[in-house]
Design a protein around this nucleic acid. Structure first.
Lengths: 212, 212
DNA sequence: GTTTGTGAAAGGATTCACAGCA
DNA sequence: TGCTGTGAATCCTTTCACAAAC
Protein backbone atom coordinates (compact mmCIF):
# COMPACT_ATOMS: atom_id res chain seq x y z
CA UNK A 1 0.00 0.00 0.00
CA UNK A 2 1.51 3.33 -1.09
CA UNK A 3 2.43 5.70 1.72
CA UNK A 4 0.54 8.55 0.05
CA UNK A 5 -2.60 6.42 0.13
CA UNK A 6 -2.18 5.55 3.80
CA UNK A 7 -1.95 9.26 4.63
CA UNK A 8 -5.30 9.89 2.96
CA UNK A 9 -7.29 6.99 4.39
CA UNK A 10 -8.00 8.81 7.68
CA UNK A 11 -9.44 11.71 5.70
CA UNK A 12 -11.79 9.42 3.83
CA UNK A 13 -12.75 7.74 7.05
CA UNK A 14 -13.72 11.00 8.63
CA UNK A 15 -15.74 12.08 5.61
CA UNK A 16 -17.52 8.72 5.63
CA UNK A 17 -18.39 9.02 9.29
CA UNK A 18 -19.81 12.47 8.65
CA UNK A 19 -21.87 11.06 5.77
CA UNK A 20 -23.11 8.21 7.91
CA UNK A 21 -24.37 10.70 10.49
CA UNK A 22 -26.47 12.40 7.85
CA UNK A 23 -28.10 9.05 7.08
CA UNK A 24 -26.42 8.43 3.73
CA UNK A 25 -25.96 4.73 3.02
CA UNK A 26 -24.10 4.90 -0.29
CA UNK A 27 -21.71 7.38 -1.87
CA UNK A 28 -20.06 7.78 -5.27
CA UNK A 29 -16.33 8.29 -5.69
CA UNK A 30 -17.12 11.75 -7.01
CA UNK A 31 -19.07 12.79 -3.91
CA UNK A 32 -16.65 11.27 -1.41
CA UNK A 33 -13.71 12.80 -3.26
CA UNK A 34 -15.25 16.27 -3.07
CA UNK A 35 -15.94 15.86 0.63
CA UNK A 36 -12.33 14.79 1.12
CA UNK A 37 -10.75 17.49 -0.98
CA UNK A 38 -9.20 15.18 -3.60
CA UNK A 39 -9.92 14.12 -7.18
CA UNK A 40 -12.21 11.17 -7.85
CA UNK A 41 -9.64 9.21 -9.83
CA UNK A 42 -7.19 9.45 -6.98
CA UNK A 43 -9.84 8.34 -4.52
CA UNK A 44 -10.75 5.29 -6.61
CA UNK A 45 -7.11 4.33 -7.04
CA UNK A 46 -6.62 4.67 -3.28
CA UNK A 47 -9.64 2.52 -2.48
CA UNK A 48 -8.61 -0.07 -5.04
CA UNK A 49 -5.66 -0.89 -2.79
CA UNK A 50 -8.12 -2.12 -0.15
CA UNK A 51 -9.93 -4.42 -2.53
CA UNK A 52 -12.99 -4.15 -4.75
CA UNK A 53 -15.78 -2.90 -2.54
CA UNK A 54 -17.69 -0.59 -4.86
CA UNK A 55 -20.67 -1.33 -7.09
CA UNK A 56 -20.47 -0.05 -10.66
CA UNK A 57 -23.27 2.30 -11.52
CA UNK A 58 -24.03 2.82 -7.83
CA UNK A 59 -21.02 3.69 -5.69
CA UNK A 60 -19.76 2.51 -2.32
CA UNK A 61 -21.68 1.36 0.72
CA UNK A 62 -20.76 3.83 3.45
CA UNK A 63 -20.69 1.36 6.34
CA UNK A 64 -18.77 -1.21 4.35
CA UNK A 65 -16.10 1.30 3.40
CA UNK A 66 -15.82 2.47 7.00
CA UNK A 67 -15.22 -1.12 7.99
CA UNK A 68 -12.57 -1.82 5.38
CA UNK A 69 -10.66 1.42 5.88
CA UNK A 70 -10.73 0.95 9.66
CA UNK A 71 -9.41 -2.56 9.25
CA UNK A 72 -6.63 -1.45 6.91
CA UNK A 73 -5.58 1.25 9.37
CA UNK A 74 -5.41 -1.26 12.19
CA UNK A 75 -8.21 0.41 14.11
CA UNK A 76 -9.79 -2.89 15.10
CA UNK A 77 -7.95 -2.70 18.38
CA UNK A 78 -7.60 0.11 20.91
CA UNK A 79 -4.12 1.57 20.98
CA UNK A 80 -2.70 2.88 24.23
CA UNK A 81 -0.66 6.05 24.02
CA UNK A 82 1.50 7.83 26.54
CA UNK A 83 1.78 11.60 26.54
CA UNK A 84 5.08 13.05 27.71
CA UNK A 85 5.25 16.75 28.52
CA UNK A 86 2.24 18.31 30.19
CA UNK A 87 2.86 21.97 29.42
CA UNK A 88 0.73 24.34 27.44
CA UNK A 89 0.33 22.08 24.45
CA UNK A 90 0.37 18.82 26.38
CA UNK A 91 -2.65 19.90 28.42
CA UNK A 92 -4.53 20.82 25.28
CA UNK A 93 -3.74 17.41 23.80
CA UNK A 94 -4.79 15.63 26.99
CA UNK A 95 -8.09 17.49 26.87
CA UNK A 96 -8.68 16.77 23.22
CA UNK A 97 -11.87 14.76 22.95
CA UNK A 98 -11.08 12.96 19.71
CA UNK A 99 -9.01 10.18 21.22
CA UNK A 100 -11.48 7.79 22.74
CA UNK A 101 -13.99 7.62 19.94
CA UNK A 102 -11.24 6.97 17.39
CA UNK A 103 -9.66 4.01 19.08
CA UNK A 104 -6.92 5.67 21.10
CA UNK A 105 -6.60 5.77 24.85
CA UNK A 106 -4.28 7.92 26.89
CA UNK A 107 -2.71 5.48 29.30
CA UNK A 108 -0.74 8.07 31.26
CA UNK A 109 0.54 11.62 31.40
CA UNK A 110 4.22 12.03 32.23
CA UNK A 111 6.31 15.07 33.00
CA UNK A 112 9.92 15.54 34.00
CA UNK A 113 9.05 18.15 36.64
CA UNK A 114 8.52 16.47 40.06
CA UNK A 115 6.58 19.53 41.24
CA UNK A 116 3.71 18.56 38.98
CA UNK A 117 3.47 14.93 40.02
CA UNK A 118 -0.03 14.01 41.11
CA UNK A 119 -1.71 17.02 39.52
CA UNK A 120 -4.88 16.03 37.69
CA UNK A 121 -5.16 16.97 34.01
CA UNK A 122 -8.21 15.85 32.07
CA UNK A 123 -8.93 13.41 34.88
CA UNK A 124 -5.51 11.76 34.81
CA UNK A 125 -2.75 12.22 37.39
CA UNK A 126 0.61 13.43 36.12
CA UNK A 127 3.35 10.90 36.80
CA UNK A 128 7.11 11.19 36.76
CA UNK A 129 9.00 10.64 33.54
CA UNK A 130 11.00 7.96 35.32
CA UNK A 131 7.83 5.84 35.51
CA UNK A 132 7.90 5.50 31.73
CA UNK A 133 9.14 1.92 31.57
CA UNK A 134 6.49 0.77 34.06
CA UNK A 135 3.71 2.55 32.22
CA UNK A 136 4.70 1.15 28.83
CA UNK A 137 4.89 -2.40 30.20
CA UNK A 138 1.81 -2.32 32.43
CA UNK A 139 -0.49 -0.48 30.04
CA UNK A 140 0.70 -2.02 26.79
CA UNK A 141 1.62 1.34 25.31
CA UNK A 142 2.61 1.27 21.65
CA UNK A 143 2.50 4.96 20.70
CA UNK A 144 4.30 7.88 22.33
CA UNK A 145 3.36 11.55 22.09
CA UNK A 146 6.14 14.03 22.78
CA UNK A 147 4.96 17.50 23.79
CA UNK A 148 8.01 18.66 25.68
CA UNK A 149 10.18 21.68 24.85
CA UNK A 150 12.71 21.05 22.09
CA UNK A 151 15.57 20.65 24.54
CA UNK A 152 14.13 17.55 26.20
CA UNK A 153 12.59 15.85 23.21
CA UNK A 154 15.52 13.68 22.10
CA UNK A 155 16.02 12.34 25.61
CA UNK A 156 12.35 11.47 25.92
CA UNK A 157 12.48 9.88 22.50
CA UNK A 158 15.48 7.74 23.44
CA UNK A 159 13.67 6.56 26.56
CA UNK A 160 10.56 5.67 24.58
CA UNK A 161 12.60 3.69 22.08
CA UNK A 162 14.45 1.95 24.90
CA UNK A 163 11.07 0.86 26.32
CA UNK A 164 10.12 -0.67 22.98
CA UNK A 165 7.85 2.09 21.63
CA UNK A 166 8.24 2.19 17.88
CA UNK A 167 5.66 4.81 16.87
CA UNK A 168 6.13 8.41 17.94
CA UNK A 169 4.21 11.58 17.30
CA UNK A 170 6.50 14.54 17.93
CA UNK A 171 5.13 17.99 18.67
CA UNK A 172 8.47 19.37 19.82
CA UNK A 173 10.13 21.63 17.26
CA UNK A 174 13.11 19.40 16.63
CA UNK A 175 14.11 16.50 14.41
CA UNK A 176 14.43 13.25 16.34
CA UNK A 177 17.15 10.69 15.61
CA UNK A 178 15.76 7.15 15.81
CA UNK A 179 16.59 3.62 14.65
CA UNK A 180 15.07 2.83 11.28
CA UNK A 181 12.38 0.51 12.63
CA UNK A 182 10.86 3.43 14.55
CA UNK A 183 8.27 5.67 12.88
CA UNK A 184 8.26 9.32 13.81
CA UNK A 185 5.69 11.81 12.58
CA UNK A 186 6.24 15.48 13.22
CA UNK A 187 3.65 18.18 13.85
CA UNK A 188 5.26 21.61 13.85
CA UNK A 189 3.28 24.82 13.97
CA UNK A 190 6.10 27.13 12.86
CA UNK A 191 6.90 24.90 9.93
CA UNK A 192 3.36 25.11 8.70
CA UNK A 193 3.27 28.87 9.10
CA UNK A 194 6.52 29.24 7.22
CA UNK A 195 5.21 27.15 4.34
CA UNK A 196 2.15 29.40 4.20
CA UNK A 197 4.48 32.39 4.33
CA UNK A 198 6.25 31.12 1.23
CA UNK A 199 3.03 30.89 -0.74
CA UNK A 200 1.69 34.19 0.55
CA UNK A 201 4.97 35.83 -0.42
CA UNK A 202 4.80 34.31 -3.88
CA UNK A 203 1.21 35.42 -4.39
CA UNK A 204 2.11 38.97 -3.37
CA UNK A 205 5.02 38.98 -5.82
CA UNK A 206 2.81 37.72 -8.65
CA UNK A 207 0.17 40.33 -7.89
CA UNK A 208 2.82 42.99 -8.28
CA UNK A 209 4.13 41.80 -11.62
CA UNK A 210 0.66 41.31 -13.07
CA UNK A 211 -1.38 44.07 -11.45
CA UNK A 212 -5.14 43.91 -11.61
CA UNK B 1 10.50 25.66 -6.62
CA UNK B 2 9.15 22.15 -5.95
CA UNK B 3 6.52 21.94 -3.23
CA UNK B 4 8.40 19.12 -1.51
CA UNK B 5 11.42 21.37 -1.23
CA UNK B 6 9.40 24.25 0.22
CA UNK B 7 8.08 21.93 2.90
CA UNK B 8 11.62 21.04 3.98
CA UNK B 9 13.16 24.51 4.01
CA UNK B 10 11.75 25.33 7.47
CA UNK B 11 13.39 22.17 8.80
CA UNK B 12 16.77 23.18 7.43
CA UNK B 13 16.29 26.67 8.79
CA UNK B 14 15.68 25.37 12.28
CA UNK B 15 18.69 23.06 12.12
CA UNK B 16 20.85 25.94 10.92
CA UNK B 17 19.69 28.18 13.76
CA UNK B 18 20.54 25.43 16.23
CA UNK B 19 23.99 25.09 14.65
CA UNK B 20 24.53 28.85 14.79
CA UNK B 21 23.83 28.79 18.51
CA UNK B 22 26.59 26.27 19.04
CA UNK B 23 28.96 28.64 17.28
CA UNK B 24 29.37 26.69 14.04
CA UNK B 25 30.04 28.94 11.08
CA UNK B 26 30.11 26.40 8.25
CA UNK B 27 28.39 23.08 7.68
CA UNK B 28 28.59 20.32 5.08
CA UNK B 29 25.57 18.95 3.28
CA UNK B 30 26.19 15.66 5.03
CA UNK B 31 26.08 17.19 8.53
CA UNK B 32 23.11 19.45 7.85
CA UNK B 33 21.25 16.57 6.24
CA UNK B 34 21.76 14.36 9.27
CA UNK B 35 20.57 17.12 11.60
CA UNK B 36 17.50 17.54 9.41
CA UNK B 37 16.67 13.87 9.05
CA UNK B 38 17.13 13.69 5.26
CA UNK B 39 19.73 12.38 2.80
CA UNK B 40 22.58 14.64 1.72
CA UNK B 41 21.80 14.41 -1.99
CA UNK B 42 18.25 15.52 -1.34
CA UNK B 43 19.46 18.42 0.76
CA UNK B 44 21.88 19.59 -1.92
CA UNK B 45 19.23 19.39 -4.60
CA UNK B 46 16.85 21.36 -2.38
CA UNK B 47 19.44 24.07 -1.73
CA UNK B 48 20.34 24.23 -5.41
CA UNK B 49 16.87 25.68 -6.03
CA UNK B 50 17.89 28.73 -3.99
CA UNK B 51 21.08 29.30 -5.97
CA UNK B 52 24.71 28.29 -5.59
CA UNK B 53 25.74 29.27 -2.10
CA UNK B 54 28.04 26.44 -1.09
CA UNK B 55 31.80 26.18 -1.43
CA UNK B 56 33.17 22.95 -2.88
CA UNK B 57 35.50 21.21 -0.54
CA UNK B 58 34.20 23.25 2.39
CA UNK B 59 30.41 23.32 2.73
CA UNK B 60 27.92 26.09 3.38
CA UNK B 61 28.25 29.23 5.46
CA UNK B 62 25.63 28.90 8.18
CA UNK B 63 24.61 32.56 8.36
CA UNK B 64 24.48 32.91 4.62
CA UNK B 65 22.21 29.89 4.26
CA UNK B 66 19.94 31.20 7.02
CA UNK B 67 19.66 34.42 5.08
CA UNK B 68 18.84 32.81 1.74
CA UNK B 69 16.35 30.32 3.13
CA UNK B 70 14.60 33.04 5.15
CA UNK B 71 14.38 35.20 2.07
CA UNK B 72 12.99 32.36 -0.05
CA UNK B 73 10.33 31.65 2.58
CA UNK B 74 9.26 35.28 2.64
CA UNK B 75 10.34 35.73 6.25
CA UNK B 76 11.82 39.17 5.60
CA UNK B 77 8.58 40.69 6.77
CA UNK B 78 6.46 40.05 9.86
CA UNK B 79 3.19 38.33 9.06
CA UNK B 80 0.10 39.07 11.10
CA UNK B 81 -2.13 36.13 11.92
CA UNK B 82 -5.58 35.93 13.44
CA UNK B 83 -6.55 33.01 15.63
CA UNK B 84 -10.20 31.98 15.57
CA UNK B 85 -11.48 29.64 18.26
CA UNK B 86 -10.08 30.06 21.75
CA UNK B 87 -10.95 26.70 23.25
CA UNK B 88 -8.62 24.08 24.59
CA UNK B 89 -6.33 24.02 21.60
CA UNK B 90 -6.72 27.69 20.73
CA UNK B 91 -5.40 28.71 24.14
CA UNK B 92 -2.41 26.44 23.76
CA UNK B 93 -1.66 27.95 20.35
CA UNK B 94 -2.04 31.49 21.70
CA UNK B 95 0.43 30.64 24.46
CA UNK B 96 2.91 29.02 22.11
CA UNK B 97 6.12 31.01 22.32
CA UNK B 98 7.46 30.23 18.86
CA UNK B 99 5.48 32.88 17.00
CA UNK B 100 7.28 36.13 17.67
CA UNK B 101 10.83 35.00 17.15
CA UNK B 102 9.93 33.39 13.84
CA UNK B 103 8.35 36.38 12.20
CA UNK B 104 4.70 35.85 13.08
CA UNK B 105 2.51 38.03 15.24
CA UNK B 106 -0.90 37.19 16.63
CA UNK B 107 -2.97 40.25 15.76
CA UNK B 108 -6.11 39.10 17.54
CA UNK B 109 -7.97 36.23 19.19
CA UNK B 110 -11.56 35.73 18.08
CA UNK B 111 -14.29 33.49 19.38
CA UNK B 112 -17.93 33.05 18.44
CA UNK B 113 -19.03 32.86 22.09
CA UNK B 114 -19.99 36.36 23.38
CA UNK B 115 -19.56 35.13 26.95
CA UNK B 116 -15.80 35.04 26.44
CA UNK B 117 -15.42 38.49 24.94
CA UNK B 118 -12.84 40.57 26.80
CA UNK B 119 -11.22 37.61 28.54
CA UNK B 120 -7.43 37.84 28.43
CA UNK B 121 -5.53 34.91 26.96
CA UNK B 122 -1.76 35.15 26.63
CA UNK B 123 -2.11 38.87 27.18
CA UNK B 124 -4.61 39.42 24.38
CA UNK B 125 -8.32 40.14 24.83
CA UNK B 126 -10.76 37.78 23.12
CA UNK B 127 -12.91 39.59 20.57
CA UNK B 128 -16.10 38.61 18.83
CA UNK B 129 -15.96 36.67 15.58
CA UNK B 130 -18.02 39.41 13.99
CA UNK B 131 -15.03 41.76 14.40
CA UNK B 132 -13.11 39.67 11.87
CA UNK B 133 -13.38 42.06 8.93
CA UNK B 134 -12.19 44.98 11.05
CA UNK B 135 -9.27 43.02 12.45
CA UNK B 136 -8.11 41.81 9.06
CA UNK B 137 -8.28 45.30 7.59
CA UNK B 138 -6.82 47.24 10.53
CA UNK B 139 -4.04 44.79 11.38
CA UNK B 140 -3.10 43.74 7.88
CA UNK B 141 -3.78 40.07 8.61
CA UNK B 142 -2.75 37.66 5.87
CA UNK B 143 -2.90 34.29 7.63
CA UNK B 144 -5.82 32.74 9.50
CA UNK B 145 -5.62 29.98 12.13
CA UNK B 146 -8.79 27.99 12.68
CA UNK B 147 -8.99 26.19 16.03
CA UNK B 148 -12.75 25.88 16.35
CA UNK B 149 -14.74 22.66 16.64
CA UNK B 150 -15.35 20.93 13.31
CA UNK B 151 -18.91 22.19 13.10
CA UNK B 152 -17.97 25.86 12.89
CA UNK B 153 -14.81 25.60 10.82
CA UNK B 154 -16.27 25.99 7.33
CA UNK B 155 -18.21 29.09 8.35
CA UNK B 156 -15.10 30.67 9.85
CA UNK B 157 -13.17 29.72 6.73
CA UNK B 158 -15.76 31.35 4.47
CA UNK B 159 -15.58 34.53 6.53
CA UNK B 160 -11.79 34.59 6.35
CA UNK B 161 -11.86 34.14 2.59
CA UNK B 162 -14.51 36.86 2.27
CA UNK B 163 -12.16 39.22 4.14
CA UNK B 164 -9.38 38.50 1.69
CA UNK B 165 -7.33 36.02 3.73
CA UNK B 166 -5.77 33.54 1.32
CA UNK B 167 -3.62 31.41 3.64
CA UNK B 168 -5.24 29.25 6.29
CA UNK B 169 -3.93 26.81 8.85
CA UNK B 170 -6.76 24.51 9.89
CA UNK B 171 -6.65 22.60 13.18
CA UNK B 172 -10.31 21.62 13.04
CA UNK B 173 -10.85 17.98 12.06
CA UNK B 174 -12.62 18.70 8.81
CA UNK B 175 -11.78 19.34 5.17
CA UNK B 176 -12.40 22.95 4.16
CA UNK B 177 -13.80 23.90 0.76
CA UNK B 178 -12.05 26.99 -0.62
CA UNK B 179 -11.46 28.80 -3.94
CA UNK B 180 -8.34 27.62 -5.69
CA UNK B 181 -6.31 30.73 -4.95
CA UNK B 182 -6.56 30.01 -1.22
CA UNK B 183 -3.98 27.78 0.47
CA UNK B 184 -5.14 25.57 3.30
CA UNK B 185 -2.86 23.42 5.40
CA UNK B 186 -4.35 20.92 7.78
CA UNK B 187 -3.03 19.76 11.14
CA UNK B 188 -5.05 16.84 12.43
CA UNK B 189 -4.05 14.86 15.49
CA UNK B 190 -6.29 11.84 14.84
CA UNK B 191 -5.06 11.59 11.29
CA UNK B 192 -1.50 11.36 12.47
CA UNK B 193 -2.36 8.77 15.09
CA UNK B 194 -4.23 6.69 12.54
CA UNK B 195 -1.27 6.76 10.17
CA UNK B 196 0.94 5.56 13.03
CA UNK B 197 -1.67 2.92 13.79
CA UNK B 198 -1.35 1.61 10.25
CA UNK B 199 2.39 1.18 10.53
CA UNK B 200 2.23 -0.26 14.04
CA UNK B 201 -0.37 -2.75 12.83
CA UNK B 202 1.80 -3.70 9.87
CA UNK B 203 4.87 -4.17 12.05
CA UNK B 204 2.91 -6.40 14.42
CA UNK B 205 1.68 -8.51 11.50
CA UNK B 206 5.21 -8.91 10.11
CA UNK B 207 6.57 -9.88 13.50
CA UNK B 208 3.98 -12.66 13.61
CA UNK B 209 4.78 -14.09 10.17
CA UNK B 210 8.53 -13.92 10.68
CA UNK B 211 8.94 -14.58 14.41
CA UNK B 212 12.25 -13.86 15.98
C1' DG C 1 -27.18 5.71 -18.43
C1' DT C 2 -24.02 5.63 -14.40
C1' DT C 3 -20.02 4.55 -11.91
C1' DT C 4 -16.19 1.51 -10.68
C1' DG C 5 -11.55 -0.45 -11.35
C1' DT C 6 -7.38 -0.17 -13.79
C1' DG C 7 -3.89 -0.27 -17.52
C1' DA C 8 -1.20 3.28 -19.67
C1' DA C 9 0.72 7.87 -19.80
C1' DA C 10 2.39 11.85 -17.59
C1' DG C 11 4.39 14.32 -14.03
C1' DG C 12 7.20 14.81 -9.67
C1' DA C 13 10.48 13.58 -6.39
C1' DT C 14 14.41 10.96 -4.95
C1' DT C 15 18.65 8.78 -5.57
C1' DC C 16 22.80 7.86 -8.07
C1' DA C 17 27.18 8.95 -9.47
C1' DC C 18 30.50 11.94 -11.04
C1' DA C 19 32.40 16.21 -13.27
C1' DG C 20 34.07 20.43 -11.60
C1' DC C 21 35.90 23.39 -8.35
C1' DA C 22 38.24 24.87 -3.93
C1' DT D 1 41.69 15.40 -1.29
C1' DG D 2 36.88 16.94 -0.03
C1' DC D 3 32.53 18.51 -1.05
C1' DT D 4 29.17 20.84 -4.04
C1' DG D 5 26.08 21.05 -7.96
C1' DT D 6 23.67 18.53 -11.31
C1' DG D 7 22.54 15.55 -15.41
C1' DA D 8 20.70 10.83 -15.75
C1' DA D 9 18.28 7.07 -13.96
C1' DT D 10 14.94 5.33 -10.86
C1' DC D 11 11.09 5.35 -8.19
C1' DC D 12 6.69 7.01 -6.69
C1' DT D 13 2.32 9.49 -7.43
C1' DT D 14 -1.19 11.41 -10.04
C1' DT D 15 -4.04 11.79 -13.96
C1' DC D 16 -6.20 10.10 -18.05
C1' DA D 17 -9.43 7.49 -20.38
C1' DC D 18 -12.10 3.60 -21.11
C1' DA D 19 -13.70 -1.31 -20.81
C1' DA D 20 -16.46 -3.85 -17.67
C1' DA D 21 -20.29 -4.15 -14.60
C1' DC D 22 -24.52 -2.72 -12.67
Amino acid sequence: MPEATVARLPVYLRALNALAETGRTTVSSEALATASGVGSAKLRKDLSHLGSYGTRGVGYDVQELVFHISRALGLGQRWSVVLVGVGNLGQALAGYGGFDDRGFRIAALLDADPARTGELVAGLPIRLLSDLADVVRDEGVSIGLIATPAAGAQDVCDRLVACGVRSILNFAPTVLQVPEDVDVRRVDLSNELQILSFHEHRKAAEAEVVPA
